[in-house]
């Protein structure tokens, strides 16, 4: 058997906001088909770390490698800025607030990336966008604007929008935190199906059920460092650190 290929690699990521050091050297490697859940209490730096992976937040220092493209950051300056857009187009991203473009319909939202960034012909992009929206169960909502959709539907459009770019990996930044409780399930179900088809995913979440049952690896951040890391079963049944033990007892 061949060793699974590395999709995304982050090495020694540091990030400071002014004097406050939020990330104190985090390294993470995602291989093909990995589903990594990142847990941590608020202020642990988990969202900041995720946003450093596609340079929505520029790390203070560290190295990120995606698809062989390597970006080294020193003193808050990426050493080869030109590759940032490449890296971003290879990583899908889901936001807590969905961030669908409000002036475009669901279908137009999904087509935008392929047409504008990948320069695909419009007709092809439309066919694929329709198929993707069908896949997330929204074939009858394609021509609606985001404001006409529920939060759960918006997040599913956002998933289709990310998939349309055929990303190497997808980053999820608390994708269900802004949803009404009864809408969380429909989004988690889609995420679960993505995991089942072998997508590489990195998920910052508060959904312990998802972390435990769907992910292949759990990373627990505490005060800007990885406090504990491992397969979910082992971590949840035998927490090694006191902070993680306290964390799971609180969220349960």
């Amino acid at each position: 058997m061949t060793k699974p290929e590395t999709i995304l690699k982050a090495e020694d990521i540091h990030k400071s906001f002014g004097r406050l050091e939020v990330l104190k050297g985090i390294s993470l490697e995602a291989r093909n088909h990995d589903v990594i859940s990142i847990l941590g209490s608020s202020g642990s730096g988990k969202s900041t770390f995720l946003r450093c992976l596609n340079f929505l937040e520029i790390p203070t220092s560290g190295k990120v490698t995606v698809h062989g493209e390597e970006i080294l950051v020193k003193n808050g300056k990426p050493q080869n800025v030109r590759h940032i857009e490449d890296i971003r187009s290879r990583l899908g991203m889901l936001f807590q607030q969905f961030n669908l473009w409000t002036h475009r319909t669901a279908l137009e939202n999904v087509m935008e990336g392929p047409v504008q960034v990948k320069r695909e012909p419009k007709a092809d992009a439309r066919d694929r966008a329709e198929a993707l929206l069908k896949r997330v169960g929204l074939e009858d909502r394609m021509h609606m604007y985001p404001s006409q959709l529920s939060g759960g539907q918006q997040q599913r459009v956002a998933i289709a929008r990310a998939l349309a770019m055929e990303p190497d990996a997808i980053l999820f930044d608390e994708p269900t935190s802004a949803l009404d409780p009864e809408l969380v399930g429909e989004v988690l179900k889609v995420m679960q199906s993505l995991a089942a088809e072998g997508r590489t995913m990195i998920v910052v979440t508060h959904e312990m059920g998802f972390a435990r049952e769907v992910s292949s690896e759990v990373v627990f951040l505490h005060e800007g460092r990885i406090a504990e890391q491992g397969p979910p079963d082992e971590m949840f049944t035998h927490p090694k650190t006191e902070v993680f033990e306290r964390f799971i007892s609180k969220v349960k």
């Binding site: 971003r88 187009s89 669908l100 504008q116 929008r161």
Partner: peptide, 9 residues
């Protein structure tokens, strides 16, 4: 941010 994340200039 959504535009950046998808790789737009």
């Amino acid at each position: 941010e959504a535009g950046r994340a998808i790789g737009m200039t």
